[in-house]
Amino acid sequence: MTKNTPPLVPVMNTEEVNRLMGEVYPQLNSEYADYVATDVFPGGCTVRLNANERHLRPGGTVSGPCLFTLADIGGYVCVLSHAGPDALSVTTNLNINFVRKAGPGPIDGHCRIIKLGRSLMVFDIDIVAGPERLTVAHATGTYSVPPKR
Rank of each mutant, 00 (worst) to 15 (best):
L56F: 10
N52D: 15
K115Y: 06
R118L: 08
C111Y: 03
I127R: 12
S30F: 14
M21S: 02
M121K: 03
T91V: 08
E53R: 08
A51K: 01
S81E: 10
R48W: 00
N95M: 13
F98W: 12
F68G: 12
T38D: 01
D72T: 14
L67G: 05
S81Y: 04
T38W: 00
G64F: 02
A71P: 01
E23L: 13
A51G: 02
T91F: 01
P58N: 08
L94A: 03
N50C: 01
E53D: 15
L116G: 05
S81R: 06
Y76E: 09
P106T: 01
P106N: 05
S89M: 11
A87H: 12
F98T: 03
I127Y: 14
Y32I: 11
G59R: 12
G59H: 07
V99D: 04
V62W: 05
T92Y: 01
V36N: 05
P106C: 00
G75R: 06
T61Y: 03
R100G: 03
G103W: 05
Y25R: 11
R54T: 07
A71M: 04
L56V: 15
A33G: 11
R112N: 09
G109E: 04
V90M: 11
C78V: 06
P65M: 09
Y25K: 00
T46K: 14
R100M: 05
K101R: 15
T69L: 15
N93H: 13
V36L: 13
F98D: 01
P85W: 00
L116M: 13
C66Y: 14
G105K: 01
S63H: 15
Y32V: 13
H110G: 05
D108P: 07
G75T: 07
T38F: 03
T92A: 09
S81L: 10
S63W: 07
G59I: 07
H82C: 13
Q27S: 13
C66K: 10
T61S: 09
D72K: 07
A129E: 09
G74H: 04
R112S: 12
I114G: 06
I113K: 05
Y76W: 15
C78P: 01
T46F: 01
P104L: 00
E23H: 10
G59D: 06
L120G: 00
D72L: 06
L94M: 10
Q27T: 15
L80G: 09
I114N: 13
V99L: 13
T69K: 12
